[in-house]
Amino acid sequence: MIRTMGKFSIQMLILIGIYQIGNLTVRIFHLPIPGNVSGIIILFFLLWIGIIKIDHIEMAAGWLLKHLSFFFIPISVGLMTLGPVFVTKGVSFLLVLIVSAFIGLLSAGKATQAVIMKKEKEKVNYHDHAL
């Protein structure tokens, strides 16, 4: 139990450390990306070149991802300051956001799937030809 907790804490510290390095590199090199995206890229590279192994962070990373929704709740509570806007503009406001989100979701999903299917079909055709 204590051992597991110790392991979990060390893994968490590794993730916090890499996140801070991500923030730092963005600030030092004035990169046009956010600190968290830079952190994802750094962690990916460390995993790729083998400095960090999946085992070193998997327990904490899995726990954080399982509860990823939680971290957005306190930020969303900030919507309570928007009461007056909602009263006057609520319906059109929501309508614009919902319709444009649906259009974006469908076109992104359909386009991606179409390109994947085309690629996979080409592969099958090529295979037929070889036969």
């Binding site: 991500g22 994802i40 899995g62």
Partner: peptide, 15 residues
């Protein structure tokens, strides 16, 4: 409560 949002986001590098 959002202190761990950054580390949680970079944990996406694992999947």
């Amino acid at each position: 409560m959002t202190y761990l949002l950054g580390p949680a986001t970079i944990a996406l590098a694992v999947p």
